[in-house]
Write a protein that binds this DNA or RNA. Structure first.
Lengths: 137, 137
DNA sequence: AGGGCAATCGCCCAAAAGGGTGATTTCAGC
DNA sequence: GCTGAAATCACCCTTTTGGGCGATTGCCCT
């Protein structure tokens, strides 16, 4: 969405520059000076947004709390989500078991289900896929 | 660094706007129209970069190839960096060994050194710490 | 020429992770 | 009251990881 806005800004900038290039004189006669300045400025503002978006991050989703859509799509349960977050935090099965106050076997079961649902072959892989799907920051 | 540039851009924009606000008439008399347009445009360009940087990502380092500063600080060698990237891609030691055409033992050695340098107690932990330090995307 | 470092590999062993299967409980929804 | 899904736990077994040695090679630098 923001990427789209940036592209529109860039197009606006390009359009403005093209107009200037093609018929500067007539444009200058037709438009009051201030409006012309504002046009150019707006174009550069859009271009700047484009540059900023290109240079920085570029990741689509910002703040994040899990993507309910993809999460529901894969039928990842609440418990599996909490376990997934623990895994992403770099904790071991034993640590997760302690934190969640369940048996290590339970943690292993949850993780196994997560792997199946995410199509992952390891915890790092699972985290990467979850991040691609936008269900983990 | 890029953040600094964005801030400079924003300051330029603010300065330009302030000048316009304070003494538009004298500025218009003193400067040829095109230069004035360029000044405003450059200001807005910087402002746009600032907005883009603020809206998107916000992470400090952008396109990326490893953060040389933190990397040098921890004395992470070239080979260790490539191994780290493979680990972050979710590959197993055996797979990494195949890709890099070295023995699995060598991969293990590199990873062990990485753990020591990063102060990590597992691959996921190592990736998280490396990402915090900005030496991995 | 010698020291230091990166890169490579080997071996041993313990711990962790992962795969497969089965079982129980709890609880919401029909 | 029955059903199904979620959550819990257990056991067995294989593979992977990780820790802790040591050793060699090649390269850069002084």
């Amino acid at each position: 969405m923001w990427r789209r806005a940036a592209i529109y800004g860039g197009l606006l900038a390009a359009g403005t520059l093209a107009l200037e290039w093609l018929d500067y004189e007539r444009l200058a006669r037709a438009l009051p000076g201030e409006i012309y300045v504002c046009l150019i400025a707006a174009g550069f503002l859009g271009l700047g947004v484009l540059v900023g978006a290109r240079v920085f991050g570029g990741r689509a989703a910002p703040v994040f709390d899990g993507n309910p859509t993809a999460q529901a799509e894969l039928k990842i349960s609440r418990r599996e989500m909490t376990v997934l977050k623990e895994v992403a935090a770099g904790r071991s099965n034993k640590e997760i078991a302690l934190v969640l106050k369940v048996s290590p076997n339970t943690v292993k079961t949850h993780i196994a289900r997560l792997f199946a649902k995410l199509g992952a072959k390891g915890r790092v892989d699972a985290i990467n896929r979850a991040r691609e799907l936008g269900i983990v920051p």
